[in-house]
Structure formats: C-alpha cells, structure tokens
C-alpha cells in the first residue's frame, strides 16, 4: 500500500475535475482539451502508483535499491502515446465537423427527440390529431437546425 502526498492528490483532483467539466461541453474543441487534461491526470495517477520519487531506472547509474519502479513509467509512456494518437484524431474530427456543418458542436439526436415527442399524452389514440404531430415535428426540426 502506498500513501500519496496531498499536493499530488489535489493536483490530480483538479485535473480530473477540469477534464470532466470540459468533457461535458458541446464543442468538440473543449472536449478535446478535456481529454488532454484528463489524460494528464490519469498519467500522473499512474506515476504515483509507482511509489514516491526515486532515481531513474537506468542500470548502473545508482544502486538498485534507490531505483524507482519502472513499470508505471512504461505504462504511462504507452498511455501518453495513445492519448497523443487520439488527440490528433479528435483534432481531425473536429476540423471535419467544422468543414461539414460549420461548427464543431455535438448536436442532439433528432430521431430520439422524434420518438420522445410521439409518446406525449397530447398525441392520444382517441383523437389522432395531425396538427399535434406536426407541431412536435416542427419543434424538433427547429431544435435540430439551430
């Protein structure tokens, strides 16, 4: 079992909080920054999982007992590479969304909205009023087109 120093724990908490907040935004650019920040938080956590700071794990430089645990560093390096790849992918996706629809915001699911409005009690079986449906459809379309 390892205990963590408070500064590091606080740093990780702030990184996670910021990351999750940004991840909940609609703009893909903010989501991207959120992923990067969250990735930093996770990697820091991985580093801390290896124990307190110690000498770099290079053979022959320091006595073996002073060496830090190299495995979390290898894991963090792999995670960094993966985050790097995903960051570039999200950048490309955001740019593609920007070219295609003029902005990079994640929008609502139109079909889901349509089904949701179908089940409203106003659209009752006894009085299949088309106007209600159409009004609902218009509502959905105006939502989608914003």
């Amino acid at each position: 079992m390892i205990t963590v120093n408070a500064t590091m724990a606080l740093t990780i908490a702030v990184l996670f909080a910021t990351g999750f907040y940004l991840l909940l935004q609609r703009s893909l650019m903010r989501v991207l920054i959120g992923v990067v920040v969250l990735g930093h938080g996770t990697n820091l956590l991985l580093q801390l999982a290896g124990g307190p700071p110690a000498a770099p794990p290079i053979l022959g430089t320091v006595p073996a007992e002073a060496i830090g645990d190299p495995l979390p560093q290898a894991l963090a390096l792999t995670a960094v590479v993966i985050t790097f790849a995903l960051t570039t992918f999200l950048l490309a996706l955001g740019y593609r969304a920007f070219v295609l629809v003029g902005h990079d915001e994640v929008q609502d699911d139109i079909e889901d909205r349509r089904i949701g409005t179908q089940s409203l009690p106003t659209a009752s079986l006894a009085d299949p009023d088309d106007e209600v449906d159409e009004a609902a459809d218009d509502d959905v379309e105006s939502q989608a087109g914003r």
Partner: peptide, 17 residues
C-alpha cells in the same frame, strides 16, 4: 510517418482548403 501524415492532412490540407 505519423508526424508527416499529420502535417500533410492537418497542416498542408487545411492550408489548401
């Protein structure tokens, strides 16, 4: 290769667009 591809698509590609 990955970095060059990145510069080609996200760098040069956007410049061209």
């Amino acid at each position: 290769g990955a970095v060059l591809d990145l510069l080609r698509s996200l760098g040069g590609g956007i410049e061209r667009d």
